[in-house]
């Protein structure tokens, strides 16, 4: 029965990390019907299987209820609004799929999607590797580790308004960034007025803030790996790169999935700093989807259109997330 899923922990056998996590086992196999109905039901209710399922639901329920009230209902409303024309000031009017068609034919929306994809993958590609590397460094013995780790983490806790002001200042043509470029013999860049430079600038800013952020996520993942595994691996003669390859990486896989998915979602919703620094310009080069949605909804008073754009955003990130779940063989089946 369900107890079979508690397989023995796979020690040091990296390739069997998946088996270690959760064994297969039928999730809700029913007993063979040989006894009268009522008794059967009673027994079924008392069975460990049902108790297990019930506790599963119970643990999930409080948070899920909150999500229903404050997330799912608003989401359904947003979905409904995407099928209407709604200016916030007068009641919404149903228009079917018109908003979606409008967006599909709108070059500005296309530009916004392109800009968002650029930003998301431009930042995430770096975040995934740099933050893992940084976490590994800080997981190793290092003098003054606590102080250094705090210093590295500071950018992640700067208030977002200040984050924006700092980078606006760094982007000044005679600011620190260009001083650094000059020091290594590179030409100055007009970070905020050159449509080709502005996105790389924002990506740099995001790395400064979010690499440390995800470093902490990885660090906690690394700390969560029980020592026994490394000890067992050491007995098998695996250390250093080997241990990383056969112990760390497989056991870190859930964390890696977390970082990949969360970073994509977080970056796809980038908003405040872009709003403060460029407001989407020059020539729409930084009008990310979130800004497009904000402007369309609250400045242009086209909430229906904004909702439709956000449904596209949801579809995009959802597709990517499902792809990742499959790619990582996320196997908490239900």
């Amino acid at each position: 029965m369900w107890l079979t899923r508690a397989g023995p922990p796979a020690v040091a056998g990296g390739s069997s990390a998946r088996a270690e996590r959760i064994g297969g086992g039928a999730p809700h196999r029913l007993p063979v019907p040989t006894v009268p109905r009522a008794a059967r039901a009673a027994r079924w209710l008392r069975s460990a299987e049902v108790r297990h399922q019930a506790w599963g639901y119970l643990f999930l329920a409080p948070m899920f209820l909150l999500l229903v009230v404050f997330k799912f209902i608003p989401m359904i409303q947003a979905l409904y609004l995407s099928l209407t024309t709604y200016d916030l000031l007068s009641p919404p009017r149903f228009v079917g799929l018109r908003n979606y068609m409008t967006l599909l034919g709108d070059p500005l929306f296309h530009q916004s999607v392109g800009v968002t994809v650029y930003y998301v993958f431009g930042t995430c590609g770096f975040i995934w590797f740099l933050s893992l590397a940084m976490a590994l460094i800080f997981n190793a013995p290092l003098p003054g580790k606590n102080l250094l780790r705090t210093i590295y983490f500071l950018p992640a806790i700067v208030p977002v308004v200040v984050y924006a002001v700092i980078w606006q200042f760094l982007f000044h043509p005679y600011g620190l960034l260009n001083v650094a470029l000059h020091a290594v013999g590179l030409p100055a860049i007009h970070w905020l007025t050159d449509t080709r430079a502005v996105m790389p600038g924002f990506i740099l800013a995001a790395l400064w803030r979010f690499v440390p952020y995800f470093m902490i996520v990885y660090l906690a993942g690394l700390q969560n790996i029980p020592h026994e595994y490394y000890e067992a691996a050491a007995i098998d003669g695996a250390a250093g790169v080997q241990a990383f390859r056969y112990v760390t990486l497989p056991l870190l896989r859930p964390t890696i999935l977390l970082v990949v998915v969360v970073s994509i979602i977080l970056m796809s919703k980038v908003f405040t700093n872009v709003l403060i620094i460029t407001g989407g310009g020059p020539d729409g080069a930084t009008r990310v989807l979130s800004l497009f949605i904000y402007q369309t909804g609250f400045q242009f008073f086209k909430m229906g259109l904004a909702s439709a754009a956000s449904i596209f955003l949801l579809l995009g990130t959802m597709t990517f997330t499902l792809l990742q779940l499959r790619l990582f063989r996320d196997d908490a089946r239900g």
Binding site: D194, T195, G281, D283, G284, Q295, F300, F301
Partner: peptide
């Protein structure tokens, strides 16, 4: 609000690009 962002974009194109 639509108009002013459209004008800004136009000006960006002429002046910066």
């Amino acid at each position: 609000a639509d108009l002013q962002t459209i004008i800004a974009r136009m000006v960006d194109r002429v002046i910066l690009k």
